[in-house]
Amino acid sequence: MLESTNEIYWFLTLVVIVILCLLIFFLAIMVKNYRVRQKAESDVKDAIISTQENEQNRIAEDLHDDIGPMLSAIKLQVSALSDADREETKESLITIDGYLNQAINNVRAVARNLSSQLIVKFGLEQSLRDNISMVSSLKRVNINFDFDLKEYKLLASQEINFYRIIREMLNNSVKHSNCENIWISLVYNNQSILLAYSDDGRADEKVDSTKSMGQTNIRNRVNLLNGVIKNFSDDFTTGAKYEFIFPVVNKKL
């Protein structure tokens, strides 16, 4: 009897020890996971700060390249007016008017690019179409855009992320790939949202984009949307190709 009681105690003590070992293991992997998440969060913060820095540089570039020269041209035209006769004044005023219209359009485009509120206000499709037509006219690139998410309502934050991802890819193509055609497709397919992007880039040199902030930014935003990266080829010498699949659990409108 005593022996059997002893065996039961032994057994129960050992079971408790096994359970404690399991608990310690779970606790240890929780701590490990916490550290991994802390690191990932700090990487995301770094990426956000760098992206903001890049964004500010891009705004400065836009202002300098698009609006600055127009204002300088207007200033020159206005200076020339003091010495001009009536006919020349009229011509100058027409030119100034054209420059002012372009400057106003450029300011609007820059503002639309910057403001997430405007993306929400005009909707994802309209904001993308505006951006695409601006890029298309300024850089002389033929952009084929296929959008079919009309039946599904996206959250504002999702719309902003999709917009920023596509704009980042467009910027990369225009900047590095020397392409003539770009194909963008954002459609609902088989209970998922499929974002496919490609260009016929033929850059002379390969750009090392493994550590580029833009690419990190795209990956981070895809992660934020719980997306899966099916294809992430950014070789601009042969044409960039991106393909992402995002889960969708939205109600139909």
């Binding site: 779970f26 490990k32 996971n33 998440r37």
Partner: peptide, 30 residues
């Protein structure tokens, strides 16, 4: 379970895989 902890960028307690693997681990070990 360890690999999940290292790779998961979301809280383990909110990860279905962790609960499934954890449940299996508890069950098999004990």
């Amino acid at each position: 379970a360890y690999k999940l902890a290292v790779q998961s960028k979301i809280d383990m307690l909110k990860n279905i895989k962790f609960w499934i693997v954890g449940g299996l681990l508890v069950n098999i070990t004990i």
